[in-house]
Design a binder for these strands. Sequence first.
DNA 1: CTGTTAGCGCGTTCAC
DNA 2: GTGAACGCGCTAACAG
Lengths: 348, 348
Amino acid sequence: MSTEMADPAGAKPTLRDVALAAGVHLATASRALSDSKTRPVNPRTAALVRQAAAKLGYVPDQVARSLRTHRTPAIGVLIPDMTNPVMPPLVRGAEQVLAQHGYTTLFADTDNDQAAETQRLAMFLSWRVAGLILATARRDQPLAPELVNSGVPVVLMSRKLDATPVPSATIDESVGIAQALDHLIGLGHRRIAYLGVPLWTSAGHERLVAFREITRDRGLDLPPEFAQVCDGYSERDGEAALAALLARPDRPTAVLTGNDMMALGCYDAIRAAGLRCPADVSVVGYNDMPLTHRVDPPLTTVRVPYFDLGRQAASLLVEALDDRGSTERSVRLTPRLLVRDSTAPAPT
Amino acid sequence: MSTEMADPAGAKPTLRDVALAAGVHLATASRALSDSKTRPVNPRTAALVRQAAAKLGYVPDQVARSLRTHRTPAIGVLIPDMTNPVMPPLVRGAEQVLAQHGYTTLFADTDNDQAAETQRLAMFLSWRVAGLILATARRDQPLAPELVNSGVPVVLMSRKLDATPVPSATIDESVGIAQALDHLIGLGHRRIAYLGVPLWTSAGHERLVAFREITRDRGLDLPPEFAQVCDGYSERDGEAALAALLARPDRPTAVLTGNDMMALGCYDAIRAAGLRCPADVSVVGYNDMPLTHRVDPPLTTVRVPYFDLGRQAASLLVEALDDRGSTERSVRLTPRLLVRDSTAPAPT
DNA sequence: CTGTTAGCGCGTTCAC
DNA sequence: GTGAACGCGCTAACAG
């Protein structure tokens, strides 16, 4: 069986095959394809090599290249749960700029599980990723030691750490809370409650702190129970918390929640108490997840630019990778209140 | 500067360092850590090696390993758009079983763009991925030639190809359509319309075909305009299509749509026509995206097990990889109608 | 059971 | 400008 022909269906062509076909040396082919700055190559031969490569369907072996160069153009992205509606735009944004810069995105969903996170992190590290984007960070939990002394650059996405200063792309939660509060106050509300998401994320914590500070700032004198944190993120959590508050004689006339699901749960509590939204109680959500414009009533909520946040997180990392770790800065984006129909003037 | 000590903060320890520390040969250390089946190693020395590895913080270099073994435990996952609510559970499911089997997930969002897809595919191929999961397939568009003669196993997720038989994990669309139709027919509806999603996905095509077949089967005599396909996937697309139908003297009393967004657009058309849902017109959606239970009225829709679909797609691929490509089978899951409040008995 | 040796595919340092 | 040699970190052979 004579097999003198190039075998498009057989083994993958290697750089040597390309060099052979182009009638040049291996090293020349290498330089031609990666147009080496240090060792320029004759344009004519370069064209020849490129032609041969195309003809053979040559695809450079990233694995071999990485081993040689000790640079792996791959970034690990760790997500706590893709089902969380804020995650898809985050990931989409990150992947977009990473690909733009030639990086491949290694993806993992940890399902909010510590063991899963450790396992995925080890995977990423064994791939010698050039950097890591973490959307899984908990405020109180420092970066894993194996991570810090691996020396791999890390950027936190939509999260921050309390103690350790790690570059991050986050939003200014106080702006979102302030806009929501001022909207409500402008509508004449004075008894405003906050039902927060859990505090183990920086976002959750900052929203609560912002609520406390800004209400004090605006001269609102609220009972401490009016600023509380729920156990979870669900409609049921929001419903239960508001139900308790509505039973009070000094019940709130408006409620601001840490996410949209809880806001929708508030709808249920209001209805169950024989009240109406927004006539009796105004509701403001957070995140502007899909379809919140279609619920009844359409939800007033704080829109967070998650897609941009993902892009920024990736940009930060790419920058750091280029500048050899000089610019370890963070970025902070601004959310914007979206007024719909779940807020109305305070009842008199 | 004497640097005789192990440097946990310096260069990554290599297998040789581990072997040295454990007082064994490089190859022995290799076998100990990957407990090679073919070449068993003394449990005592194995423990020694493992201990040394742990102490040094050794992380095996997957890049070097892949170069040597010609096996890259990485799977590329190509997604058309993470913003599409069906995608997150798909990806989550796939990543979960891939990680379970030791595979790293390479992720890319093509933004429904051909050029982006080509670029990402080239990336994946250059990484010598062991397999590919594609959620981007278009019915009429065969697999890219560079892909087919790369020989990399491919599984299609939630999509199929018309001409080429590629293993896939999909759902049985005819079951979903049949359940929806029988529900409507049971409610006394006879004039039922279908407003489909575009036909370039197998799912879109199969839903339309199923609608036509089943309505004929059930003896419904529908004008051809009652089964139509919209240009896009949005609320506006659904609204416009239904508005035209509602203007007819023989307007439908029920409408089934190719996705949930279009179903919600139908709500708008119904309201604009001075009619009510479900009293005058019943609506059934498709996919059961988040919050469809909270819209007004809560949407009756076909729930599709996307998370399982993702798991199955990955399982299919892992199987094929184990069996060396012997079992090139496909899998078909079953959707289930979720009856809520957007459907009611036909008006008399 | 363990040590020895060779080389995966590529980029880079030297010589020419 | 181009050719030759070397080695990245690891595992598959083959001895011993």
